[in-house]
Computed example of a mutant assay.
Amino acid sequence: MIRIAIVDDHPLIRDGVRGWCAAAEPRIEVIADHPDPAAFLSATGPDRGDLDAIVLDLQFDQRAPDLSALGTICTRGHRVVVYSQYTEPRLVRDCLDLGAVTYLSKTEGREHLITALHAAAEVRPYLSPTMARAMSTDGDDRPRLSRREREVLLAWFQTESKALVAQQLYITIGTVNTYLERIRAKYAAVGRSAPTKAALVARAIRDGLITTDDL
């Protein structure tokens, strides 16, 4: 059973996501919903480990998108699927940099959201159309990697296993896999797939992310 929480200030959205989840296969259980991030953070505490994913809106009470709340929730170790009406490429990329595992537009609907939640629960990425568009608007064919993604990538190049990367960076092997798959998704989105470690090394050197001396 996949278990999630919903954070959105519109009851209609919360009820709709609940209905989609109940009909999903495998079934997704919504064990909590909250009208804003403060309520979610207050209810869950810092170490709640029974949630596989969080569906998070960015706008509450008609204010501007709240990225600070997203950063806090991601820092607590939650796998966040952003579900927002906003589709500006820079905002999408900023959310991914803060740790969101997927960014979906609310116009993308049930199919994409359910698929993204299954992927999040299985610790693998899901490249939504909104993410693909955002990653392809940087002006060249170099994907925009976050600082943490670059750290994980370099550590993986310099070590013999993902377990050593996890130990070195104080994260889990599952998190290492998530970063690497997200990096691969970013390369695929700009038409430069890198399915192997050797291919990622070649891409990273060409893009100036690392040098041969780093290896």
Rank of each mutant, 00 (worst) to 15 (best):
A69K: 05
P125Q: 06
I4C: 09
A116F: 12
G16Q: 08
A121L: 01
K197H: 11
I205W: 02
G191Y: 01
G49A: 14
A166V: 10
P195H: 02
A5L: 01
M131L: 11
T137Q: 14
T107A: 14
V30C: 09
V17S: 12
A22L: 12
V176I: 10
L127I: 08
G71R: 12
A188H: 05
S161E: 06
V123N: 15
V176A: 12
I31P: 01
A22C: 02
D214T: 02
L12H: 07
V30H: 04
G71P: 14
C95Y: 10
S193F: 01
Y126F: 15
D141E: 13
V92R: 10
L153A: 05
M1T: 13
V55L: 12
Y170P: 00
E25D: 13
R192C: 10
T178F: 05
K186Q: 15
E25H: 15
G16D: 05
K186I: 01
D33S: 04
M1D: 12
A204Y: 14
P143L: 12
D15R: 14
L67F: 15
K186G: 13
T115S: 14
T115W: 04
M135H: 05
L56S: 10
Y187P: 01
P195T: 06
V176Q: 10
S84V: 03
R203S: 11
W20N: 04
A194E: 12
R18L: 10
T75A: 13
N177D: 14
A100C: 08
C21W: 01
A202P: 03
E160C: 03
M135N: 02
L117C: 06
L200A: 08
R133Y: 03
Y103T: 02
S42G: 08
R14M: 11
V123K: 13
G49Q: 14
P37K: 06
V101M: 03
G71W: 07
T44Y: 05
Y179D: 04
I73W: 02
R206L: 12
L180G: 08
N177Q: 10
R14A: 12
E111Y: 12
I114G: 13
V152F: 10
R14F: 11
G174E: 10
A163K: 05
F40T: 00
R124F: 03
R18F: 09
P143G: 12
P125E: 09
D61N: 12
I6S: 06
R142F: 08
R184H: 07
Y86R: 02
T102Q: 00
P11D: 14
S136C: 06
L98M: 15
Q85Y: 00
T172I: 02
A22P: 04
D66G: 07
D47W: 00
E122Y: 03
P125C: 07
Q158N: 10
K106F: 14
S161R: 09
P143Y: 12
I28F: 07
S161D: 10
D141M: 03
A69G: 11
G99P: 09
V30Q: 00
L180Y: 05
A134G: 10
D8F: 05
Y187R: 05
R14Y: 08
T212W: 07
V7M: 07
P26F: 06
S136K: 05
L180C: 07
A32V: 00
L104Q: 05
E29L: 06
L51C: 04
S68Q: 11
T172D: 06
T172Y: 03
